[in-house]
Nucleic acid binder design. Structure first.
Length: 419
RNA sequence: GUGGGCGUAGCCGAGCGGUUAAGGCGCCAGGUUGUGGCCCUGGAGAUCGAGGGUUCGAAUCCCUCCGUCCACCCCA
């Protein structure tokens, strides 16, 4: 027997309403905020992500689905959304559009990881990118959109973590200071941290090992090392967020796994959430477009995981959205009536009435049972007697009321009442 | 990639060396002559995750693999 590959799963009809709810809310907000949808391929040249996320990032080092196609081209399944959007921005000359260009996407994303709660090898990201503007107002805008999304969905008790990780001018100075701080503690610190010290010192701040906490606690704060431009930008952002009454927690040790981030970084998680709890995250990436071969172009955005949203929706919301049920079930008895029932079904559908017809050789009793199980509001019964009279029995499944109408009247009636 | 828990019909789940492998939900069919939801009766559906081993005998013990869940790494 086949089963879905490890770390992938089917979204069955019963869960679809949650997805609909999340996606509808996201798309409605995008219209409201002036973001236009863009779809990019699920795979791209592998280099795009290596240049984007960074060769040193875990995502490209060990989590990318890389493969060669039949012509030997090196491709990769999208491990994140931003690089593709930037590629499209460049490829289609969007630098000539009014800036910033506001885009959103809804896309499957792939990472080869050990599956875990809230973590799959294929997941779906909804993301917004505003490209071509360095104003902190744009950061505030995408954060507001993300925050509104969760609010509209009724997700409560979320925390917005906020930090600035500086830019090309000030971050190197900070990293120097951070390394200097760690140098004397290298033996006391965990193995991973020794590795981070060499490879990705910013991540030192993110370590959860108890042994490393004292060193983190006394580490210099990046906020104190921001250059004037970065500081101004960060102050602006906070003013905007304050003006919008969006609460945030300054988190000087918040860092991100992708190399392209500059200045603003943020993350949204349920308060007191466990390991894989972050439901949305993002930040500014002012150097990425240039890195991909464009002119220097500031940009900012976020991505949020639909599966993680759905996970939280299911936990937090008691109300289960309704599943799809037909309005009318057409039952029949006798060979002649079969075809007539099939025809009646078609006529009802042409009037926009969602209708299901009984198929196979089942007794009327069985058909009624099925109509009930499917949740049909009405059953139209066509037997030999009705066939002869050109009528149909209309049964209201809620109150068991039933009456006989001419077919034409029945169609008219159902069209009216089910609208 | 590392560590731990778990894998019995579509779903939940008992059994833990010798049973025709419980039970519930769901599905299908009947409960008289053309009709649902409740109830009653019957039925279908399981190579007990896969492969190997121990044993007279294995769903039950051992090994390997696969899957799943949880934690780490990292991330949405």
């Amino acid at each position: 027997m086949f089963s879905a590959p490890r770390g992938t799963s089917d979204v069955l009809p019963a869960e679809q309403p949650y997805w609909r709810e999340a996606i509808d809310a996201a798309e409605r907000l995008c219209r409201l905020f002036g973001y236009a949808r863009i779809d990019t391929p699920v795979f791209e040249q592998a280099d795009l992500f290596e240049r984007g996320a960074g060769e040193g990032s875990d995502v490209v080092r060990k989590e990318m689905y890389v493969f060669e196609d039949r012509s030997g081209e090196r491709l990769a399944l999208k491990p994140e959304g931003t690089a593709s959007i930037c590629r499209a921005y460049l490829q289609h000359g969007m630098g000539n559009l009014p800036q910033p260009v506001r885009l959103y996407y809804l896309s499957p994303t792939f990472r080869y990881e050990r599956p875990q709660a809230g973590r799959r090898r294929q997941h779906t990201q909804f993301g917004c990118e505003a490209i071509g503007d360095a104003d902190a107002a744009v950061d505030a805008e995408v954060i507001e959109l993300l925050w509104r999304l969760y609010a509209d969905l009724g997700l409560g008790d979320l925390v917005l973590l906020l930090n600035s990780i500086g830019d090309r001018t000030c971050r190197p100075r900070y990293l120097e200071a951070l390394r200097a701080h760690y140098q004397p503690h290298l033996r006391a610190v965990c193995r991973d941290c020794r590795d981070r010290y060499a490879r990705n010192p910013l991540r030192l701040l993110d370590c959860k090992q108890a042994s490393c906490q004292p060193v983190i606690a006394t580490a210099p704060s990046i906020i104190d090392y921001l250059c004037d431009d970065c500081r101004r930008n960060f102050d602006d952002l906070r003013r905007y967020l304050d003006a919008l009454d969006i609460p945030y927690e300054l988190t000087p040790h918040l860092v991100r796994g992708l190399d392209y981030y500059t200045r603003t970084v943020f993350e949204v998680q349920p308060r007191g959430g466990g390991a894989q709890s972050t439901i949305g995250a993002g930040g500014r990436y002012d150097a990425l477009i240039e890195e991909l071969g464009g002119k220097p172009t500031p940009a900012t955005g976020f991505a949020t995981g639909i599966e993680r949203i759905v996970l939280n929706l299911r936990q937090q919301k008691a109300s289960v959205p309704t599943a799809t049920t037909p309005q009318v079930y057409v039952a029949h008895q006798g060979v002649e009536a079969r075809v007539e029932a099939f025809k009646l079904t078609s006529l009802l559908r042409r009037e926009g009435v969602s209708t299901v017809v009984a198929t196979g050789e089942r007794s009327l009793k069985s058909q009624m049972r099925q109509a009930n199980a499917l949740g049909a509001a009405w059953v139209a019964i066509l037997g030999e007697r009705e066939l002869a009279a050109g009528t149909v029995q209309l049964r209201n499944m809620a109150d068991a009321g039933q009456r006989e109408l001419l077919q034409r009247e029945a169609i008219q009636f159902l069209t009216g009442t089910t609208r």
